[in-house]
Amino acid sequence: MGLDVISPALLVLAISLSWNRFTCIFNLASSASLAAAPLTTAATAISLSAFGLAFAGNTPWFGFLIVLAGVLASSTVKKQPAAITVALSAISLAAYLPFSPVQM
């Protein structure tokens, strides 16, 4: 159990912690100020970056499993404050970058 488990887990964590705030921009019930908030912008950037990295460094099926696990795990963090979850998702995405198989 080495880096093969840690790097996808960090991506799942980044997606799951930022997903709820990211999806509020598509919800008609949310206000325009919430959708335009800086925290929502950060969550969107983190979520889309983790989504892209899940597919860039892995096979399409494994990337799909990473994204699916992140989306399913996002239901467990709905009650947490958004600032804390977005900050933790940024930390997990930053922790993933040294393990990233994609050369930049």
Rank of each mutant, 00 (worst) to 15 (best):
F99I: 10
S74E: 02
G63V: 07
T40N: 02
A43D: 01
F99R: 08
A9Q: 03
L53A: 06
K79E: 13
P81T: 10
A83K: 12
S47N: 15
A43W: 02
L53V: 07
F99D: 06
A32E: 14
C24Q: 09
M1E: 13
A73I: 04
D4Y: 03
A73H: 03
F55S: 02
S7G: 12
L34M: 05
F99C: 07
I46N: 05
S49A: 15
P38H: 09
T59A: 09
A94K: 05
K78T: 13
G57D: 10
W19G: 01
F62Y: 14
L65V: 13
V12E: 01
Q103F: 11
S75M: 08
V5G: 03
L53N: 04
A87L: 13
A35D: 02
C24Y: 04
K79A: 15
K79M: 11
P8I: 05
A37S: 15
G57R: 11
S100H: 07
A87E: 04
M1R: 12
L11V: 12
A50S: 10
S7H: 14
K79R: 13
A36Q: 09
A73V: 04
M104A: 14
M104L: 13
I84K: 10
D4G: 12
P98Y: 07
A95D: 08
I84Y: 11
S49V: 11
A50R: 02
S47I: 04
N58K: 08
S47T: 14
F26E: 01
L11Q: 07
W61R: 10
S89Y: 00
R21A: 03
I15K: 00
L13I: 08
F55G: 00
A45P: 13
T76E: 08
T40M: 03
Q103I: 15
N20G: 04
V12F: 05
N27V: 13
L11A: 06
G63E: 02
L17R: 03
S16T: 11
A94I: 15
A95F: 06
